[in-house]
Design a protein around this nucleic acid. Structure first.
Length: 291
DNA sequence: TATGAGCGT
């Protein structure tokens, strides 16, 4: 084992010897606008080499503070340095272009002015039920006025349909008769006679929805189905996922056919350890009911 | 981190 302290490396020996490098020099030629930098160093073969670099000095605008700083007398450890940057501790690099974010912002703000003013005071939506300044689905009179209006419409349609199909059921005629008319969801068809109720044995309870939170990220709909199936029939499962990445957001909605089953699921699964996490289950609040 | 999406005006 060689003793490192007793035998300094070849690099140290070179530096310790009388092979001392001359200091770098810098010459500026105002006539040509060039700066010549000369420095000395050892190459790979331990030979002393002279490195000459020529810079083209451009005249450029600098801010006042930089210009002032450039005129300062050198001080401290650099007191005895030649004018200009010292190549042993300073590197002149290429220009770096910096784009400031705030300038973009101010531009955007300027552009925003006009469109904002344009739509100012304009009525964007008008409720079909009460003509108010909100979407029809958000209408406060949706439940009270809308069915009234619908039944009025149905009566009008029935009157028209009597000539064409006297024996047909009113609702079916109305739905089948208007091919270019507006869409009526299946649960709202059949007008006021509610024939669907006798078929389904009662309306399904929309409020039998529970929310499951603290799900692990790799939980899938199928897993939830397996987990909640024992409590009763499930009508729908929605697992919240990121639209872009598809990654689970860690919560889900489960729709049961019966509210009692949902209640039992809350009792049974809340606090249930699943995939190293403790599940939290509670009643879901309907979305889109924000004031 | 956490209450879903769709239709339309």
């Amino acid at each position: 084992m060689p003793d490192i302290d007793a035998n300094p490396s070849w690099a140290d020996q070179v530096e310790d010897g009388d092979d001392v490098l001359p200091p770098p020099t810098e010459d500026f030629h105002a006539s040509t606008g060039t700066k010549i930098l000369t420095e000395y160093k050892f190459n790979d073969d331990d030979k002393k080499v002279k490195v000459v670099r020529t810079f083209k000095i451009e005249k450029r605008k600098v801010s006042k503070s930089i210009a002032t700083r450039k005129a300062w007398k050198k001080f401290g450890a650099a007191e005895k340095d030649a004018p200009g940057p010292n190549p042993s501790n300073t590197i002149i690099s290429e220009d770096v272009i910096i784009q400031f974010v705030h300038s973009k912002d101010s531009q955007l703000n300027d552009n925003d002015e006009d469109p904002l003013n344009k739509i100012k005071g304009q009525k964007m939506v008008s409720c079909r039920i009460c003509k108010g300044d909100h979407w029809t689905t958000k209408c406060p009179y949706k439940d009270s006025l809308a069915p009234l209006q619908e039944s009025l419409d149905e009566k009008k349609k029935d009157g028209d349909a009597v000539d064409a199909a006297p024996g047909a059921p009113p609702g079916g005629a109305a739905a089948a008769k208007a091919p270019g008319g507006k869409y009526v969801p299946p649960n709202l068809r059949d007008g006021g006679n509610r024939r669907g109720e006798s078929m389904m044995g009662g309306r399904k309870d929309e409020s039998a929805t529970i929310r499951v939170t603290n799900l692990s990220e790799d939980t899938r709909e199928a897993d939830l189905q397996e987990l909640f199936k024992p409590f009763g029939n499930i009508s729908r499962i929605y697992l919240a996922k990121d639209k872009v990445t598809g990654q689970s957001k860690g919560f889900a909605f489960i729709n049961f056919h019966r509210r009692e089953d949902a209640a039992r699921a809350i009792q049974g699964i809340s606090g249930f350890g699943y995939d190293h996490l403790i599940l939290n289950v509670e009643w879901a609040k309907p979305s889109g009911t924000n004031p």
